Amino acid sequence: MGEVFAGRYELVDPIGRGGAGAVWRAWDRRRRKYVAAKVLLQGDAHMLLRFVREQALRIDHPHVLAPASWAADDDKVLFTMDLVAGGSLAHVIADYGPLPPRFVCALLDQLLSGLAAVHAEGVVHRDIKPANILMEATGTGRPHLRLSDFGISMRKGEPRLTETDFVVGTPGYFAPEQLAGGEPDFPADLFAVGLVALYLLLGRKPDAQALVERFGAHGTPDAPEGVPAPLWGVISNLLQPDPGNRFRTATGARKALAEAAQLLPDPVPGEEPVEVFDQLGPLPAGFGPQGPEVAAAAAPVGFGPPPAAYGPGQPAAASPETSGFHLTPPAVAPPAATPPAASPAPRAVRSGRIAPPPAKVTAGILTAALLCFAVGVWALTRL
């Protein structure tokens, strides 16, 4: 059995590490499903501020992986997301190298669709790169992409968490205006999409600085080898050094991409299909598709029927969605002559499900409380 966090999330095994902390596969006892949980220490005030911003993001879109719930326990906090098993675009390239243009078009269409939803909320992602673009394990079926990791994202007009001359993001995927210290804006995300497109088509990380220099010296250069001309017409627009010369919106880039895809040659007969494998591996001993195996025989009091009563990843029909757990009282009261045993003081734990749209006020209060706490810790560290 793994460590149980805040009485709800059983940490199963580590599956990755992000800039703000470790990422675990975890069993959500309330929702009866496996989730991805990002865990970090509350003592790091700067990271806690980023945590508050990321867990507050509420974007419901099939190609966006946003937080679903959060919890705090002792000196740690976590938030959870859907568990995506296919790894990142970096895994796909490691398995196959350069990808077929039509497959790349399908991925870019989904990425731009998700990014359009993010921008519609006034959010600039600021860290679009292959490692932050996750894939469902669809095998040889239609790919399904999820844009993730909003740890350094920000809404336009929000105060920065860094000094104005400090560049935030991943080296190699900066837009020229980011390197110059400009305010975060949507065109910078579109520039990064252009670099991701080249990465998928060439099978290697492109040299962003060299590309900018080529554009500056020759206008729009010829398409790199392996990049079809119709597709290069879209990518070269995304990579324009001057943000004013790029597509104005992700939706506009997506429309141009659809037109370019129609001009691509048909797939080569016998071309090997791209397969997106399950990158998580088997569950460790003691865990099965329906949760901890020990729970299959007898569920803990207060958690409803055994997990076998539900399909994999399905929530219990009668599971309450309120924070905390309420144990079922005993059926028979203890004898009057027997004094009740003193209960140890409970640990301070907090957990909650990010509210759906009708309950945004409650979620906003929780987010504000976390933010106030984080700002206070940060202010103390600056004294």
Score class of each variant (00 low, 15 high):
G151H: 04
G151E: 07
I152H: 00
S153E: 05
M154N: 02
R155W: 00
R155D: 04
P159S: 06
R160M: 12
R160N: 06
R160E: 08
L161M: 11
D165A: 09
D165E: 13
F166K: 14
V167S: 05
V167E: 12
V168A: 04
T170Q: 03
T170R: 05
T170W: 00
P171I: 00
P171K: 07
A175M: 01
P176E: 03
E177D: 14
E177N: 02
E177H: 09
E177I: 05
Q178G: 06
L179C: 08
L179N: 06
G181Y: 00
E183Y: 06
P184K: 08
P184N: 05
D185G: 04
D185Y: 10
F186Y: 13
F186E: 12
D189L: 11
L190V: 07
F191C: 15
V193K: 10
V193C: 14
A197T: 09
Y199M: 01
L200I: 12
L200M: 15
L202F: 09
P206V: 02
Q209F: 04
A210I: 03
A210N: 05
L211H: 02
E213T: 13
G216V: 08
H218T: 09
G219L: 13
A223F: 09
P224T: 11
E225T: 10
V227L: 14
P228I: 10
A229M: 03
W232N: 01
W232V: 10
W232A: 08
G233S: 10
S236D: 04
L238D: 12
L238F: 02
Q240L: 01
D242Q: 08
R246K: 10
T251A: 15
T251H: 06
A253Y: 08
R254Y: 07
R254Q: 15
R254P: 00
A256P: 03
A258E: 15
A258W: 03
A258I: 05
Q262C: 05
Q262Y: 05
L263H: 11
D266P: 13
D266L: 15
P267N: 06
P269A: 01
E272K: 15
E272T: 14
V276A: 11
D278C: 04
D278Y: 07
L280W: 06
